[in-house]
């Protein structure tokens, strides 16, 4: 019974197990991987995984609604190419092109929601279809492909360029002389904003509660008078919106949009969300879990690379952690079901 009790304790503080795992791994790498605990490496970790964390938070919304968004990666590619085309080919300045690209991604997300609700497609099937369709769209509108003179074009728009900035925290706090602080990439600050907003939406708003109800028990939500379809469409729209933000961050970093941008990110974000305690059974999840999940994957990959361990080992380890997270999720869910059965 000890096992169940310890799991019950962990459940009372969602994300506690993950936080402990994160701290343990982080400490281990700090001791055993050379230069892991250096300002430059923390900077790399923040720059390299903040966008993945934003996407994982977006992914959490459809999963909480008991769905999934497999198209996020393609949607990122689409948003990036729209931004590139608008700015490079049509000369639309960044301040107008950035919101347009984000809006297009949100719209693509809403379309996913409509396929799931109006056409009653399985989320897996609907978003698998748009995964292919949106990627096809990227190639179809690729300015680098349509106009060879733009193939080697680097975006120099000041609005877009300024997003790839670093904030020197040490100096602005006046602590720079005490120790070397990592410069914080702007994408991490965007992430903090997104995570805070998402957490408030999930825990403090009517929409957040309704979303969890829809994901936990669709029928009950329907009977309680919740506009189930509208909630689901909103969840996919938010996932699309996060893809738009990431598209803008990537274009700023790449100075171009690649046709393959975002490929495979769907799996990483789902893994990060699940590791972050967003249950695949729907109905539960918060915003900080997926964020921590994304950084956990980053810590493992960067830590093992710094230790010189082969990438195949890294992939196996990532798989094992994901498996562990899913099993942990299942155990707690089964336990909860058993508790419901006992009480009811």
């Amino acid at each position: 019974m000890f096992e169940f009790e310890s799991i019950a304790v962990l459940r009372r503080f969602p994300g506690l197990a993950l936080l402990i795992l994160f701290i343990v791994l982080f400490s281990l790498f700090s001791v055993f991987a050379r230069r892991f605990l250096s300002a430059a490496n923390i900077e790399d970790l923040l720059a390299g995984y903040s966008f993945m964390a934003i996407l994982a938070i977006g992914q959490a919304f459809p999963i909480i609604a008991r769905g999934v968004d497999l198209s996020v990666g393609s949607n990122v590619g689409l948003g990036a190419m729209i931004l590139f085309d608008l700015n490079a080919i049509f000369g639309v300045p960044g301040y107008a092109a950035i919101p347009l690209a984000i809006a297009a991604c949100a719209l693509a997300g809403a379309l996913n929601g409509l396929l799931v609700t109006l056409l009653r497609l399985q989320p897996f099937v609907a978003t698998l279809a748009t995964l292919a369709a949106y990627r096809g769209g990227v190639y179809a509108i690729s300015g680098r492909q349509l106009y060879p003179e733009f193939a080697m074009h680097s975006i120099r728009d000041p609005w877009i360029h300024s997003l790839e900035a670093y904030v020197d925290v040490g100096r602005s706090l006046g602590l720079g002389r005490l120790m070397k602080f990592p410069s914080i990439p702007l994408s991490f600050l965007i992430l903090i904003g997104v995570a805070t907003a998402a957490q408030i939406v999930l825990s403090r708003t009517r929409f957040g509660l309704d979303l969890k109800t829809v994901g936990g028990n669709r029928e009950a939500a329907h009977l309680a008078g919740i506009a189930v379809n509208r909630i689901q469409v909103a969840a996919y729209t938010l996932s699309g919106f996060s893809a738009g933000l990431v598209a803008v961050i990537l274009v700023a970093r790449f100075t171009t949009a690649t046709e393959a941008a975002g490929t495979g990110m769907e799996l990483t974000t789902i893994a990060a969300a699940v590791i972050g305690g967003v249950s695949l059974q729907g109905g539960t999840g918060n915003a900080f879990g997926p964020m921590l999940g994304a950084f956990l994957l980053g810590v493992i990959l960067i830590g093992l690379t710094l230790m010189g361990i082969s990438q195949f080992t890294q992939q196996i380890l990532t798989g094992l952690i994901l498996l562990g997270a899913v099993l942990y999720d299942r155990t707690t869910w089964d336990h909860e079901q058993a508790a419901h059965a006992r009480n009811g």
Binding site: N41, D44, G48, T258, G264, T305
Partner: peptide, 11 residues
């Protein structure tokens, strides 16, 4: 993936 190469370059 470019983003993977960028992260590896950083490391």
């Amino acid at each position: 993936k470019v983003e993977v190469q960028i992260s590896l370059m950083d490391t």
